[in-house]
Design a protein around this nucleic acid. Structure first.
Lengths: 194, 194
DNA sequence: GTCTATATGGTGATAGAC
DNA sequence: GTCTATCACCATATAGAC
């Protein structure tokens, strides 16, 4: 039998470290030399787990989108009224961003070309599923009269804009937690400014 | 006397074409060969107007931030009530994004490292001035009772999140103009969802 | 001012020993 | 599975003719 890996789960470790690096410097600006140095691996070892640099990036994006959708889907309780479900959706997003901070930043700031067509398709499906969940909440809120008759697509995009942009300015060691910020945003979007 | 330039304003032309390229592929993924080819210039000619690729990027960011601040400052009429000024601010942002679409995308998606420390400082000052303008509108709206007593910094960030994220999904040839979207967002943020 | 040709360095990826 | 050594390539940037 072969020699055991140096660490428990090399693939996961590589993805974690790569996300940290990509978030800091951007995808193209990060070299595999840096990645190898940061995790005390050699370039050769990395290529034993991933066929290319692009494959590492793709894996980060897919895993993060999947985590985002799963967190939203499991946080939203279908039996609750629409406003409460919207709150659950937003809180889950913020929690997920906080838990996968570097991956979210990578997704926001990095070059967004996915090489593998099948994976790109998966990514789009996950994003659509996630946004679809949100739109359904808004639609049902309008249908039962708890929300004003707003444009569903536009309003969904507004909610996702607030949450997505968090990756740009949020800091894990900042004064407010992700959930606190999501709660503030929920209040603002539901009650409005006036 | 020397030979005249091939085009009227080579520097501006280079910046325009570079923004288009950076927006499409990202900063690091774009090469000066591509840039030169796209504008039927040679690499050597470009280096006559900019000392480095980084200098081109920096110039795009500074010019865009300046245009954004100027457009907001000149659109907001100090004599109008806070809600109307907020509307003016948001509409100006959307107009500016539409008019400088590729530069806004470059600013959003590109690698954000500015090499020149002085320029980086300028960029931060412009951004702060722009955000300060927005916060003042919100503050005065709260002070005179037209807005609820919300957290000013948080609310300002929310408004800028909506507008900034537009660079990610807005398409100049899409069904709605920038101003129409800004108007929708204004309604949502002022009236709320409920 | 514009071009072609070139210097220089670092990148992603591979080969092959252990 | 991990490493070192190396390849082939393409990038930014420069030099110098016109």
């Amino acid at each position: 039998m072969g020699r055991p890996p140096l660490v428990d789960d090399p693939r996961a470790e590589i993805l974690r470290e790569a996300a940290r690096l990509f978030a800091q410097k951007g995808y193209a600006e990060s070299s595999l030399n840096e990645l190898a140095a940061a995790m005390k691996y050699s370039k050769g070892a990395i290529y034993n787990y991933f066929a290319s640099k692009q494959e590492i990036y793709d894996a980060i994006i897919i895993a993060t989108l999947k985590a985002l959708y799963d967190s939203a889907a499991s946080a939203v309780n279908p039996d609750d009224p629409a406003p409460e479900r919207l709150r659950q959706f937003m809180m889950a997003h913020a929690r997920c961003l906080e838990a996968n901070y570097h991956a979210f930043v990578t997704m926001l700031v990095g070059y967004s070309g996915m090489a593998n067509a099948a994976l790109k398709d998966d990514a789009l499906k996950l994003r659509d599923a996630h946004e679809g969940l949100l739109r359904q909440i808004i639609s049902e809120g309008i249908a039962d009269g708890t929300f004003r008759p707003v444009d569903v697509a536009m309003t969904g995009r507004a909610v996702l804009s607030l949450l997505s942009w968090m990756a740009r300015w949020f800091r894990p060691d900042g004064p407010k937690s992700g959930e606190e910020i999501a709660a503030d945003y929920y209040d603002l979007i539901v009650k409005g400014l006036a």
